[in-house]
Design a protein around this nucleic acid. Structure first.
Lengths: 140, 140
DNA sequence: TTGTATGCAAAGCGTTTGCAGTGAT
DNA sequence: ATCACTGCAAACGCTTTGCATACAA
């Protein structure tokens, strides 16, 4: 059975209070304010077990490391800022994606990631967007 | 300037003839049938330069390693079979995604990945889907 | 007391880089 | 003859694992 430890509580709290999906390293830094001796291996082990028990959800963005967020929202997508790289929840969904599938392909689920400028970073100016994010710009 | 080598030709050919996005390791194995002494580092370096010059495109699926495909289609998405893990192009796009963004967020591009059963694998039966793919099933 | 959880360090895995030798121009 | 390209091995960043210790239960 699971044991209640200071480390586990700190990790839970870090994710619950972040307001956005966190990288394991970010979870570590946040949780260390509570438990300074906390190790990264413990963070990874705890994130895995919390994820398996359904307490937290993984956020997988194309070409980026896994992030974790509270497992509250039923279905949503994500927005990543091309400038500050932070990730935000998007509580909307295009819906009806089965129509996009080729003949004979049955869709069970989907992942959508939006890229652009977040509210803080504003429109692209002298500080241009990092070039190492997915292109995919289209007029759709 | 760029030089034409057997290695580069073999790598180009591997991607051009694959018919689906390939992992670097798959590119290596295919290209080694032409140039047995080919090294993985050369594959990575060549994939990068071909990608930068626009000859090939990167395919980044959430939580999976980068794949490469010919840079032909202008804008499309991908379908990954939850059974055989293969990736297929989807030449369709939901479009008009700006409406999904929160106030103040400007969308520049997007990535969409569809998951389900490909034509070959059919509906889920006794051979159940691998559990290590993104969930995200919804009624949208 | 018992055994899970922890911290540290080492190992894995995919990818990148340093360097000397190879080969296209 | 140049100098970009190649192969090998070492280095890297992120994640996982081995092992002895710490601490909930």
């Amino acid at each position: 059975m699971e044991r209640q430890t200071r480390q586990r509580a700190a990790i839970r709290a870090a994710i619950a209070q972040a307001g956005r999906p966190l990288l394991p390293q970010e979870v570590l830094e946040q949780a260390q304010r509570e438990v300074p001796a906390l190790g990264l291996a413990t963070v990874y082990r705890t994130l895995r077990s919390l994820s398996e028990e359904g307490s937290i959800a993984t956020v997988q963005l194309p070409g980026d490391n896994v992030r974790y967020e509270p497992a509250v929202s039923p279905h949503h997508h994500h927005f990543q800022c091309t400038d500050c790289r932070r990730v935000f929840d998007v509580h909307a969904c295009p819906g009806d994606l089965q129509r996009l599938a080729p003949e004979g392909f049955q869709i069970e689920s989907h992942e959508l990631t939006l890229y652009g400028r977040c509210r803080d970073c504003g429109a692209p100016g002298r500080a241009q967007a990092r070039a190492d994010l997915p292109p995919g710009s289209c007029a759709c």
